[in-house]
Amino acid sequence: MNRNVSRIFAALFGILAIALPLFAGDYPLQVARNIMLYMALAITWDMLLRSGQISFGIAGLFGVGAYAAILGVIRAGMPAWFSIIFAAIFSGVVAFAIGFLILRLRAMYFSIVTLALGEIFRIIIHNLHDFTGGPEGVVMQQGVIFGGSAGKLYWLTLAGLAVAIAASYWFEKSKIHFALTAIRNNEISAKSSGVNIFRWLLLAFVVTSAIQGLLGGIFVQSYGFATPDTVFSADFTLLPLAMALLGGVYSTRGPIFGAILLGLVSEWLKLKIPYGHLVVYGIIIIIVILFMPQGLKQLVRQPANKTDRRSA
């Protein structure tokens, strides 16, 4: 696609996204909010993936942020807006601490540990009954932010998405892009070019985790309650992952496309075949991964003209 054309499309889409609450009803706004939330998570997952590290811990850091926000309000009397920022900081600090331990791990070992971490957070919150409300969760007595106004909650989520997109572009356009790509390609040769691998991995892990925490804070402020099973739901890991894979990884655009498509399709299927929609959803993912390993991005971009090294 021509660069200018795609820019115009992006601008139009951005205006539409901002203006949506002016004409759309509560139901489409609710759907759009969900899609934007998963889209933002998909982008953060992809950002870390650019270093070659596959995280299954999205729900973990998301849930930690969600609880940080709601407990910040209930136990510490934070204002609603500040609790969201606190959620980001808290998840970032948690990621910084555990990053020191787990960023020495690679490939499958890193993935499994991030998966286990999410579960550990959930169990801790489950069991700190007096502070966290245990399995029944906690409810914000003073009600949700903005009095639950659908339009304002939509804009709040949109702002969360904007943070994720901005961070993703920052990763793409700065030296972080070079660091993460070099690390993903070959750590040994990255070291020989002066790349401090651990430092860049830690940066990527902390930034993406902080944004996941921020989104958790936004989520919990939108619904006014948190239970371990809702905020640590595997959906928050699996759906973003599927969206990014569907749209195409290592880019900002891929997860955005993937989230729009998968989000809309799953919503539509939910109406058409209640309870059956997840089956269709799963089949779509399998087909795409089998036949379009680079995701839908492949359709937009020119197919790579790979030639044999010796032939040129």
Binding site: F178, A182, N186
Partner: peptide, 10 residues
């Protein structure tokens, strides 16, 4: 390096 390691995505 003896085994060449071009960074393939760059």
């Amino acid at each position: 390096y003896q085994l060449i390691h071009p960074l393939e995505n760059l």
